[in-house]
Amino acid sequence: MTDLDQRITSTLRERAKGEIDTRRLLRAARARGHRRQLRRRAAAGTALTLVGVLGFVGVTGTDFAGLPGRLPWIATTPTVAPAVPPRADGVPGAAQRPDLVGTDARVLHLSLDTSQARYLRWDINVYAEVESIRFSVAGELPVVVDVSRSAEQLNNMGIDGPGSQWIRVPLAFDGGVQPVGATGGLAKGWQPFPGVYARATMLVGDRAALDRAVDALRWNEARRCEAPLRLTTLPKDATVVGCKADVSAVPNGVTAELTIGRGESSVMYVRLMYGAQIAGSRSDGNRTVDGRPAHLDDKRGQLELLDIPKAHLVAQFGWPWPGVDPPKGYVSFTEADAETLLAGARLPEELGRPDTWK
Protein backbone atom coordinates (compact mmCIF):
# COMPACT_ATOMS: atom_id res chain seq x y z
CA MET A 1 0.00 0.00 0.00
CA THR A 2 1.38 3.39 -0.96
CA ASP A 3 1.54 6.42 1.32
CA LEU A 4 -1.40 7.84 -0.64
CA ASP A 5 -3.42 4.69 -0.01
CA GLN A 6 -2.55 4.83 3.68
CA ARG A 7 -3.80 8.41 3.97
CA ILE A 8 -7.03 7.48 2.20
CA THR A 9 -7.47 4.44 4.44
CA SER A 10 -6.93 6.53 7.55
CA THR A 11 -9.50 9.08 6.41
CA LEU A 12 -12.08 6.42 5.65
CA ARG A 13 -11.56 4.65 8.98
CA GLU A 14 -11.83 7.88 10.93
CA ARG A 15 -15.19 8.58 9.30
CA ALA A 16 -16.41 5.01 8.99
CA LYS A 17 -19.65 5.65 10.91
CA GLY A 18 -20.51 9.02 9.46
CA GLU A 19 -20.99 10.92 6.25
CA ILE A 20 -17.94 11.59 4.10
CA ASP A 21 -17.52 14.50 1.73
CA THR A 22 -16.61 12.25 -1.18
CA ARG A 23 -15.73 15.07 -3.54
CA ARG A 24 -13.34 16.53 -0.97
CA LEU A 25 -11.75 13.11 -0.46
CA LEU A 26 -11.27 12.60 -4.19
CA ARG A 27 -10.00 16.13 -4.66
CA ALA A 28 -7.40 15.72 -1.91
CA ALA A 29 -6.37 12.27 -3.10
CA ARG A 30 -5.92 13.45 -6.67
CA ALA A 31 -4.00 16.53 -5.59
CA ARG A 32 -1.62 14.52 -3.43
CA GLY A 33 -1.13 11.69 -5.86
CA HIS A 34 -1.09 13.28 -9.31
CA ARG A 35 2.69 13.48 -9.64
CA ARG A 36 3.36 10.00 -8.37
CA GLN A 37 0.82 8.55 -10.77
CA LEU A 38 2.48 9.74 -13.96
CA ARG A 39 5.96 8.96 -12.69
CA ARG A 40 5.05 5.37 -11.86
CA ARG A 41 3.12 4.85 -15.06
CA ALA A 42 6.15 6.06 -16.99
CA ALA A 43 8.37 3.82 -14.89
CA ALA A 44 6.26 0.84 -15.83
CA GLY A 45 7.39 1.24 -19.42
CA THR A 46 10.78 -0.18 -18.53
CA ALA A 47 9.37 -3.52 -17.46
CA LEU A 48 7.00 -3.64 -20.41
CA THR A 49 9.84 -2.99 -22.81
CA LEU A 50 12.46 -5.24 -21.28
CA VAL A 51 10.32 -8.34 -20.89
CA GLY A 52 8.31 -7.77 -24.06
CA VAL A 53 4.95 -7.88 -22.33
CA LEU A 54 2.20 -7.11 -24.80
CA GLY A 55 -0.72 -7.00 -22.41
CA PHE A 56 -1.68 -4.25 -20.00
CA VAL A 57 -0.22 -4.82 -16.56
CA GLY A 58 -2.57 -4.67 -13.58
CA VAL A 59 -3.17 -1.31 -11.98
CA THR A 60 -3.27 -0.63 -8.28
CA GLY A 61 -5.19 2.57 -7.85
CA THR A 62 -3.74 4.79 -10.49
CA ASP A 63 -0.28 3.19 -10.59
CA PHE A 64 1.14 0.30 -12.59
CA ALA A 65 1.67 -2.24 -9.85
CA GLY A 66 5.02 -3.82 -9.08
CA LEU A 67 7.01 -2.49 -12.01
CA PRO A 68 10.06 -0.51 -10.90
CA GLY A 69 12.45 1.36 -13.14
CA ARG A 70 12.41 4.19 -15.67
CA LEU A 71 11.60 4.54 -19.31
CA PRO A 72 14.85 3.56 -21.09
CA TRP A 73 14.34 6.19 -23.80
CA ILE A 74 14.05 9.25 -21.54
CA ALA A 75 17.73 10.08 -21.92
CA THR A 76 17.71 9.88 -25.70
CA THR A 77 18.01 12.94 -27.87
CA PRO A 78 14.64 13.92 -29.39
CA THR A 79 14.42 13.66 -33.16
CA VAL A 80 11.32 15.85 -33.41
CA ALA A 81 10.55 19.27 -32.05
CA PRO A 82 9.77 19.34 -28.31
CA ALA A 83 6.10 19.14 -27.44
CA VAL A 84 4.42 22.47 -26.72
CA PRO A 85 0.75 22.82 -25.73
CA PRO A 86 -0.96 24.96 -28.41
CA ARG A 87 -2.32 28.41 -27.73
CA ALA A 88 -5.89 28.65 -26.52
CA ASP A 89 -6.90 31.47 -28.84
CA GLY A 90 -9.29 33.95 -27.33
CA VAL A 91 -8.78 32.68 -23.77
CA PRO A 92 -7.10 35.09 -21.32
CA GLY A 93 -4.11 34.08 -19.23
CA ALA A 94 -3.98 34.12 -15.45
CA ALA A 95 -2.72 37.69 -15.46
CA GLN A 96 -5.94 38.89 -17.06
CA ARG A 97 -8.40 36.45 -15.43
CA PRO A 98 -6.99 34.96 -12.22
CA ASP A 99 -10.48 33.67 -11.37
CA LEU A 100 -10.26 31.14 -14.21
CA VAL A 101 -7.22 29.26 -12.86
CA GLY A 102 -8.04 25.61 -12.22
CA THR A 103 -11.60 25.83 -13.51
CA ASP A 104 -11.31 24.25 -16.98
CA ALA A 105 -9.65 20.90 -17.66
CA ARG A 106 -9.01 22.00 -21.24
CA VAL A 107 -6.99 25.15 -20.52
CA LEU A 108 -3.69 26.06 -18.84
CA HIS A 109 -3.73 29.71 -17.86
CA LEU A 110 0.06 30.02 -17.86
CA SER A 111 2.81 29.14 -20.30
CA LEU A 112 6.57 29.10 -20.85
CA ASP A 113 9.02 31.09 -22.89
CA THR A 114 10.06 28.18 -25.09
CA SER A 115 13.22 29.99 -26.15
CA GLN A 116 14.40 29.35 -22.58
CA ALA A 117 12.48 26.31 -21.37
CA ARG A 118 11.20 22.92 -22.52
CA TYR A 119 7.87 21.45 -21.44
CA LEU A 120 8.10 18.01 -19.82
CA ARG A 121 4.55 17.67 -18.51
CA TRP A 122 1.33 19.62 -18.12
CA ASP A 123 -1.53 18.82 -15.80
CA ILE A 124 -4.91 20.31 -14.88
CA ASN A 125 -7.00 19.03 -11.97
CA VAL A 126 -10.36 20.79 -11.69
CA TYR A 127 -11.35 18.94 -8.49
CA ALA A 128 -8.17 20.26 -6.84
CA GLU A 129 -8.39 23.58 -8.73
CA VAL A 130 -4.70 23.31 -9.62
CA GLU A 131 -2.74 23.71 -12.84
CA SER A 132 0.81 22.35 -13.08
CA ILE A 133 3.69 22.28 -15.52
CA ARG A 134 7.00 20.45 -15.28
CA PHE A 135 9.82 21.82 -17.37
CA SER A 136 13.56 22.33 -17.69
CA VAL A 137 15.61 25.38 -18.53
CA ALA A 138 18.76 25.03 -20.65
CA GLY A 139 19.09 21.35 -19.83
CA GLU A 140 19.01 21.91 -16.07
CA LEU A 141 17.18 19.63 -13.66
CA PRO A 142 13.37 19.78 -13.86
CA VAL A 143 11.25 22.28 -11.99
CA VAL A 144 7.55 21.86 -11.20
CA VAL A 145 5.28 24.88 -10.94
CA ASP A 146 1.83 24.46 -9.40
CA VAL A 147 -0.73 27.27 -9.58
CA SER A 148 -4.01 27.64 -7.73
CA ARG A 149 -6.43 30.22 -6.39
CA SER A 150 -5.93 28.62 -2.97
CA ALA A 151 -2.71 28.76 -0.95
CA GLU A 152 -4.11 26.08 1.37
CA GLN A 153 -4.66 23.72 -1.54
CA LEU A 154 -1.04 23.99 -2.67
CA ASN A 155 0.29 23.52 0.85
CA ASN A 156 -1.84 20.40 1.30
CA MET A 157 -0.57 18.83 -1.92
CA GLY A 158 2.98 18.11 -0.85
CA ILE A 159 5.63 17.04 -3.36
CA ASP A 160 7.32 13.80 -4.30
CA GLY A 161 10.68 13.35 -2.64
CA PRO A 162 13.46 10.81 -3.27
CA GLY A 163 12.27 7.24 -3.46
CA SER A 164 8.74 6.96 -2.12
CA GLN A 165 8.90 9.95 0.22
CA TRP A 166 6.06 12.42 0.29
CA ILE A 167 7.16 15.82 1.50
CA ARG A 168 4.80 18.47 2.75
CA VAL A 169 6.18 21.94 2.11
CA PRO A 170 4.13 24.67 3.84
CA LEU A 171 4.92 28.02 2.23
CA ALA A 172 4.05 31.60 3.13
CA PHE A 173 3.78 32.64 -0.54
CA ASP A 174 5.74 35.78 0.19
CA GLY A 175 8.46 35.17 -2.41
CA GLY A 176 10.79 33.40 0.00
CA VAL A 177 12.77 30.27 -0.87
CA GLN A 178 13.23 27.37 1.52
CA PRO A 179 14.97 23.98 1.44
CA VAL A 180 13.10 20.80 0.56
CA GLY A 181 14.09 17.48 2.10
CA ALA A 182 17.70 16.42 2.46
CA THR A 183 18.73 16.37 -1.21
CA GLY A 184 19.41 20.04 -1.77
CA GLY A 185 15.98 20.78 -3.15
CA LEU A 186 14.28 24.16 -3.03
CA ALA A 187 10.75 25.52 -2.97
CA LYS A 188 9.46 29.01 -3.63
CA GLY A 189 5.96 30.28 -3.00
CA TRP A 190 4.67 33.60 -4.25
CA GLN A 191 1.69 35.48 -5.63
CA PRO A 192 2.37 36.51 -9.22
CA PHE A 193 -0.67 38.80 -8.83
CA PRO A 194 -3.63 39.03 -6.41
CA GLY A 195 -5.87 35.98 -6.38
CA VAL A 196 -3.32 33.48 -7.66
CA TYR A 197 -0.74 31.48 -5.70
CA ALA A 198 2.25 29.78 -7.31
CA ARG A 199 4.74 27.24 -6.05
CA ALA A 200 7.99 26.25 -7.78
CA THR A 201 9.86 23.18 -6.53
CA MET A 202 13.01 21.33 -7.52
CA LEU A 203 14.51 18.34 -5.74
CA VAL A 204 18.11 19.22 -6.62
CA GLY A 205 19.48 22.59 -7.63
CA ASP A 206 20.42 26.06 -6.50
CA ARG A 207 18.71 29.40 -6.12
CA ALA A 208 20.00 30.67 -9.46
CA ALA A 209 18.52 27.69 -11.32
CA LEU A 210 15.18 28.17 -9.55
CA ASP A 211 15.16 31.86 -10.44
CA ARG A 212 15.87 31.07 -14.10
CA ALA A 213 12.93 28.67 -14.13
CA VAL A 214 10.56 31.21 -12.60
CA ASP A 215 11.74 33.83 -15.10
CA ALA A 216 10.69 31.51 -17.95
CA LEU A 217 7.03 31.55 -16.88
CA ARG A 218 4.53 33.57 -18.87
CA TRP A 219 1.20 34.59 -17.33
CA ASN A 220 -0.46 36.54 -20.13
CA GLU A 221 -1.41 33.69 -22.46
CA ALA A 222 -3.39 30.47 -22.16
CA ARG A 223 -2.55 27.05 -23.62
CA ARG A 224 -4.72 24.04 -24.39
CA CYS A 225 -4.16 20.86 -22.45
CA GLU A 226 -3.25 18.94 -25.58
CA ALA A 227 -2.77 15.17 -25.42
CA PRO A 228 -2.61 12.37 -28.01
CA LEU A 229 -6.04 11.25 -26.85
CA ARG A 230 -9.44 12.72 -27.64
CA LEU A 231 -12.82 11.57 -26.39
CA THR A 232 -15.71 12.24 -28.74
CA THR A 233 -18.37 10.67 -26.51
CA LEU A 234 -18.92 10.88 -22.76
CA PRO A 235 -21.34 9.02 -20.50
CA LYS A 236 -24.54 10.85 -19.58
CA ASP A 237 -24.03 13.80 -17.21
CA ALA A 238 -20.22 13.30 -17.21
CA THR A 239 -17.57 15.93 -17.87
CA VAL A 240 -13.79 16.04 -18.24
CA VAL A 241 -12.37 17.26 -14.93
CA GLY A 242 -8.69 16.43 -15.39
CA CYS A 243 -6.12 16.39 -18.18
CA LYS A 244 -2.44 15.55 -18.12
CA ALA A 245 0.29 14.61 -20.55
CA ASP A 246 3.88 13.58 -19.85
CA VAL A 247 5.92 14.47 -22.94
CA SER A 248 9.40 14.17 -21.45
CA ALA A 249 10.20 11.12 -23.62
CA VAL A 250 8.78 12.40 -26.93
CA PRO A 251 9.09 11.09 -29.62
CA ASN A 252 9.78 7.64 -28.17
CA GLY A 253 7.22 7.62 -25.41
CA VAL A 254 4.28 9.55 -23.99
CA THR A 255 1.72 9.02 -21.26
CA ALA A 256 -1.59 10.83 -20.97
CA GLU A 257 -4.65 10.73 -18.78
CA LEU A 258 -8.11 12.26 -18.90
CA THR A 259 -10.23 12.22 -15.75
CA ILE A 260 -13.99 12.00 -16.13
CA GLY A 261 -16.26 13.16 -13.33
CA ARG A 262 -19.96 12.89 -12.63
CA GLY A 263 -21.82 14.43 -9.74
CA GLU A 264 -20.04 14.97 -6.47
CA SER A 265 -17.98 11.81 -6.33
CA SER A 266 -17.81 9.51 -9.36
CA VAL A 267 -14.55 9.47 -11.30
CA MET A 268 -13.17 7.42 -14.19
CA TYR A 269 -9.65 7.60 -15.64
CA VAL A 270 -8.83 7.07 -19.31
CA ARG A 271 -5.11 6.43 -19.68
CA LEU A 272 -2.85 6.11 -22.68
CA MET A 273 0.70 4.80 -22.50
CA TYR A 274 2.70 4.77 -25.73
CA GLY A 275 6.23 3.41 -26.10
CA ALA A 276 8.08 3.02 -29.37
CA GLN A 277 9.87 -0.02 -27.93
CA ILE A 278 6.70 -1.86 -26.95
CA ALA A 279 6.39 -4.53 -29.59
CA GLY A 280 3.18 -5.26 -31.45
CA SER A 281 -0.36 -5.25 -30.09
CA ARG A 282 -2.78 -7.79 -28.68
CA SER A 283 -5.94 -9.00 -30.35
CA ASP A 284 -7.16 -11.64 -27.88
CA GLY A 285 -9.78 -10.40 -25.45
CA ASN A 286 -12.99 -11.21 -23.64
CA ARG A 287 -15.00 -8.25 -24.90
CA THR A 288 -15.46 -6.10 -27.98
CA VAL A 289 -15.87 -2.33 -28.09
CA ASP A 290 -17.47 -1.03 -31.27
CA GLY A 291 -16.29 -4.21 -33.01
CA ARG A 292 -12.73 -3.94 -31.69
CA PRO A 293 -11.06 -6.47 -29.35
CA ALA A 294 -10.97 -5.45 -25.72
CA HIS A 295 -10.22 -6.98 -22.33
CA LEU A 296 -12.27 -6.51 -19.19
CA ASP A 297 -10.59 -6.89 -15.81
CA ASP A 298 -13.69 -7.04 -13.69
CA LYS A 299 -11.76 -7.33 -10.44
CA ARG A 300 -9.93 -4.08 -11.04
CA GLY A 301 -12.80 -2.41 -12.83
CA GLN A 302 -10.95 -1.55 -16.00
CA LEU A 303 -11.45 -2.05 -19.72
CA GLU A 304 -8.63 -1.97 -22.30
CA LEU A 305 -8.64 -1.71 -26.09
CA LEU A 306 -6.18 -4.25 -27.46
CA ASP A 307 -5.56 -3.36 -31.11
CA ILE A 308 -3.42 -0.23 -30.70
CA PRO A 309 0.20 -0.83 -31.80
CA LYS A 310 2.86 0.03 -29.22
CA ALA A 311 0.32 1.46 -26.80
CA HIS A 312 -2.16 0.69 -24.04
CA LEU A 313 -5.46 2.53 -23.77
CA VAL A 314 -7.43 1.78 -20.62
CA ALA A 315 -10.59 3.11 -18.98
CA GLN A 316 -10.61 2.51 -15.24
CA PHE A 317 -14.21 2.80 -14.12
CA GLY A 318 -14.09 1.03 -10.73
CA TRP A 319 -13.10 2.43 -7.36
CA PRO A 320 -9.40 3.14 -7.91
CA TRP A 321 -7.98 2.01 -4.54
CA PRO A 322 -8.34 -1.79 -4.12
CA GLY A 323 -8.37 -2.95 -0.52
CA VAL A 324 -10.03 0.24 0.70
CA ASP A 325 -13.80 0.38 0.91
CA PRO A 326 -15.35 3.30 -0.99
CA PRO A 327 -16.82 6.06 1.18
CA LYS A 328 -20.52 6.26 1.76
CA GLY A 329 -22.17 7.93 -1.18
CA TYR A 330 -19.55 6.94 -3.76
CA VAL A 331 -21.08 5.73 -7.04
CA SER A 332 -18.77 4.06 -9.55
CA PHE A 333 -18.98 4.40 -13.29
CA THR A 334 -19.90 1.19 -15.11
CA GLU A 335 -18.48 -1.06 -17.81
CA ALA A 336 -21.04 0.43 -20.20
CA ASP A 337 -19.69 3.90 -19.40
CA ALA A 338 -16.15 2.70 -20.14
CA GLU A 339 -17.32 1.24 -23.46
CA THR A 340 -18.88 4.57 -24.38
CA LEU A 341 -15.61 6.38 -23.72
CA LEU A 342 -13.37 3.92 -25.54
CA ALA A 343 -15.72 3.65 -28.53
CA GLY A 344 -15.35 7.40 -28.99
CA ALA A 345 -11.62 7.60 -28.28
CA ARG A 346 -9.54 9.03 -31.11
CA LEU A 347 -5.76 8.72 -31.42
CA PRO A 348 -3.41 10.28 -33.97
CA GLU A 349 -1.60 8.03 -36.41
CA GLU A 350 1.78 8.97 -34.95
CA LEU A 351 1.53 9.05 -31.18
CA GLY A 352 5.13 10.21 -30.80
CA ARG A 353 4.64 13.35 -32.91
CA PRO A 354 2.92 16.20 -31.04
CA ASP A 355 2.30 18.12 -34.27
CA THR A 356 -0.21 15.41 -35.26
CA TRP A 357 -2.23 15.58 -32.03
CA LYS A 358 -4.49 18.43 -33.14
Score class of each variant (00 low, 15 high):
Glu339Asn: 05
Asp297Met: 12
Gly184Arg: 12
Val270Pro: 02
Gly184Ala: 08
His109Trp: 00
Asp215Leu: 04
Ala29Cys: 09
Met268Arg: 08
Leu234His: 01
Glu349Arg: 15
Gly66Ala: 14
Ala16Gln: 11
Ala209Pro: 01
Gly93Ile: 06
Thr60Lys: 14
Ala28Tyr: 06
Ala187Arg: 04
Asp290Cys: 11
Ser332His: 02
Val126Gln: 06
Lys236Glu: 12
Ala338Ile: 06
Val147Gln: 07
His295Gln: 14
Lys188Arg: 15
Pro72Gly: 12
Ala345Asp: 00
Ile260Arg: 03
Pro86Asn: 04
Pro142Ala: 03
Tyr119Glu: 05
Glu19Leu: 08
Phe64Asp: 07
Leu154Met: 05
Ser248Cys: 00
Glu264Ala: 01
Val250Asn: 04
Arg23Asp: 01
Arg292Ser: 05
Met273Thr: 10
Trp73Cys: 12
Asp246Val: 02
Pro68His: 12
Gly242Val: 00
Lys328Ser: 13
Thr340Pro: 03
Asp113Leu: 02
Gly55Glu: 11
Arg41Thr: 15
Ser281Ala: 12
His109Leu: 03
Asp307Ala: 11
Ala42Arg: 15
Ala213Ile: 02
Ala200Leu: 02
Asp174Asn: 15
Lys328Pro: 05
Leu272Glu: 01
Ala138Gly: 06
Gly55Trp: 10
Asp174Ser: 09
Ser136Asn: 12
Gln6Met: 15
Ala294Arg: 14
Pro92Arg: 13
Leu305Ala: 12
Gln178Trp: 02
Pro194Gln: 05
Gln116Arg: 15
Val250Ser: 03
Leu347Cys: 02
Ala105Arg: 04
Ala336Arg: 14
Leu4Met: 12
Asn155Lys: 14
Pro162Trp: 10
Gly329Asp: 06
Arg134Gly: 02
Val254Phe: 02
His295Met: 15
Leu100Lys: 13
Trp166Leu: 14
Ala315Lys: 05
Gly253Met: 09
Pro170Trp: 13
Arg106His: 10
Gly323Ser: 12
Thr232His: 08
Thr11Tyr: 15
Met157Arg: 13
Ala31Tyr: 03
Phe317Leu: 13
